[in-house]
Design a protein around this nucleic acid. Sequence first.
DNA 1: TTCTATTTTGAATGATTTTGTCAAAAATAC
DNA 2: GTATTTTTGACAAAATCATTCAAAATAGAA
Lengths: 100, 100
Amino acid sequence: MDSLGETIRKLREEKELPLRTVAAFLDIDQAILSKIERGQRNASREQVIKLAEFFKIKETDMLVSWLSDKLVYEVADEDVALKALQVAEEKVKYNKTKRK
Amino acid sequence: MDSLGETIRKLREEKELPLRTVAAFLDIDQAILSKIERGQRNASREQVIKLAEFFKIKETDMLVSWLSDKLVYEVADEDVALKALQVAEEKVKYNKTKRK
DNA sequence: TTCTATTTTGAATGATTTTGTCAAAAATAC
DNA sequence: GTATTTTTGACAAAATCATTCAAAATAGAA
């Protein structure tokens, strides 16, 4: 149940790379990457895609991890978090059938 | 599968009230309420709570409707929308058990 | 149709949030 | 100890979001 940040930190440490190297590939300051890894900042969609490329992870897997993190953040400290997620699922399913 | 906006519009029209009346209760411009009802703007948490009070709807029900709308908006036009919602659910459940 | 009330729209403004840069401090490795 | 890496926070720029306001559009009544 890792967040995107935890995932990429593990990947980076496995390869024993400094923040600098990955940050350079993403074309961002290493401070930002540090914050992303530790969940203090959100990665952008483009950054997620580049991270998938860099670490050779399936792009959709990365995107799911990233999007779900954002959703968790959005419902954090709401009592109705779970219920809202379930209703949102229903709505998305419903919209899919509705859309011609 | 109504959005919050559709719900409160129906409630308001049932009672045959103008935007003005409800907007006054919420202490906002009627233009904003019009946009909220039509999904062009997001209501704030406080506005949702006042709406529940005004229409005598259970507050948590209103909050679920509102939060789930926001979630749907967040994942809109992502292919991985459903998957992300499901993973987010897992994460929320997991965090619940983890938190002492 | 005209008159009136209501609703919607969009431009302008302000506030808030996000995003990134930078340098110094802290931590870690050597 | 020094060197390297990581973290932190202050700051600025950019983007996003909320709100106000007035005019335009719509709907309903007479």
